[in-house]
Simulated assay, not measured.
Amino acid sequence: MSGDVLPSERTPVSEALTPLILDLLRLNSLLLGAGDRLVGHLGLTSARWQVMGAVAAAERPQPVAWLARDLGAHRQNVQRLVNDLEREGLVAFEANPHHRRAQLVVLTDKGRRAYDDAMRLQAPWMNGLSEGLALEDVAAVRRVTTLLRERLEGAEG
């Protein structure tokens, strides 16, 4: 059995992956906090900004369930955020010709301005975070995180 790994034992790659996953979880928390501070004066949070980004990036207006899918989030959480954004006048609901109950979410003019303001702040912030990083290293991390995400998404279905 030389070189073989028992099912209950970790492989060398999984040993290396475990601290990476822990670092990614901590990084996520730090990014959310930094994003909150970056856009807080605009009346946004990282979560609201993320939902607005999904609305802005969509090719056409989408219902909450589709936005949640695109974000990899629970529909109920996205619905709560969309409802908050709607109360603030940042998004609006439009009738969905394909589904009476699943209204479409769109940015209002006020929402578009807030989102554009946030993105203007995001560019220098990202430039600062990326300083000294090699493009190849960023691409390698992206490949690994994309593969892990796809495996986890496949395990859910």
Rank of each mutant, 00 (worst) to 15 (best):
A57H: 10
A95P: 14
G72S: 07
E156F: 15
A140I: 04
D116H: 06
D84L: 01
G128I: 01
A114H: 09
R37Q: 11
S2Y: 08
G154S: 10
T145M: 09
E156W: 08
D36K: 01
M119P: 11
R120N: 01
L42V: 01
S46R: 14
V82K: 02
Q50D: 11
R151E: 13
V39F: 06
L32V: 13
Q79L: 12
P7L: 00
T146F: 02
R100P: 12
S46N: 15
G3Y: 08
W49V: 06
L30Q: 08
A134D: 10
L147M: 13
G89L: 03
L31A: 15
G43H: 02
A47C: 10
R100I: 09
D116T: 03
A139F: 08
G72M: 04
A102L: 01
R142K: 13
W125E: 09
Q103H: 13
L38K: 02
R10N: 12
Q50N: 08
R112I: 03
L20I: 04
T146L: 08
L25T: 11
R37G: 13
R69P: 13
L31C: 10
G132T: 02
G89Q: 05
L135C: 11
M126Y: 12
R75W: 06
L152H: 04
E88W: 06
F93W: 14
L31S: 11
G40W: 04
V106Q: 10
Q50T: 14
T11D: 01
Q103N: 07
T45C: 02
R60E: 13
L20W: 02
E150W: 10
L85Q: 00
G43W: 05
P63M: 01
A58D: 08
S46G: 15
E131C: 14
L121C: 06
S8R: 12
G40N: 02
R48C: 07
